[in-house]
């Protein structure tokens, strides 16, 4: 039977085993999917990096190839999102340049884009109104009462929305 080298049994270095057994296969899979060898090699590398960043989950991987493709697919979506996000951010930043003190440095832009990605991903997981309450309060600086009035809900509900969004953001930072 064609058993993958890494199964549910723990190995002294499961990541190494995973890499050795499946890196070539994943690169091939990504090349077929993306049609671009450089991008595929890059993404394969990133996929393992992401898994490396979450090592404690490794011993539980029973279907390594499914796990790898899921992780790679998420990276592809994340990259597309990040690109769209960064472009929109920089474009709007130029448009409002005169109301700002200065244009952000590349480091500041990177930090901002990361935080915005975290928020965008988190807001996918909460109801539309909760996400709106979150942005009105934390980004626009409205008070709880003002948000409640704008969304026509109780201030209590606003709090619930805010807690829900913060929690979703925190889960994103761990993903």
């Amino acid at each position: 039977m064609d058993r993958p080298a890494v199964s549910c049994t723990a190995s002294p270095d499961p990541l190494h085993d995973l890499y050795a057994s499946h890196h070539g296969w994943l690169s091939g899979w990504l090349r077929r999917k993306l049609g671009c060898p450089e991008q595929a090699a890059d993404l394969a590398q990133d996929t393992f990096l992401r898994i490396l960043g979450a090592r404690d989950a490794l011993p539980a991987i029973c279907e390594p190839r499914a796990y790898l493709t899921t992780t790679a697919n998420r990276l592809i979506i994340d990259r597309a999102r990040r690109k769209a996000l960064e472009q929109a951010y920089l474009a709007e930043l130029s448009a409002v340049a005169d109301t700002r003190h200065s244009f952000p440095s590349p480091e500041e832009t990177l930090i901002a884009v990361q935080a915005l990605m975290q928020i965008a991903n988190a807001l996918d997981r909460v109801p539309v109104r909760a996400g709106e309450a979150f942005l009105l309060h934390y980004l626009d600086g409205m008070t709880h009462a003002e948000v409640a009035c704008r969304l026509d809900v109780s201030p209590r509900m606003v709090r619930k929305y805010l807690v829900q969004c913060l929690l979703a953001c925190d889960l994103q930072s761990a993903a």
């Binding site: 999102r81 990040r82 769209a84 996000l85 709007e92 930043l93 990605m117 965008a120 942005l135 980004l139």
Partner: peptide, 9 residues
């Protein structure tokens, strides 16, 4: 810009 960026993503 922050709002537009989130929306675009």
């Amino acid at each position: 810009p922050a709002r537009q960026a989130i929306l675009a993503a």
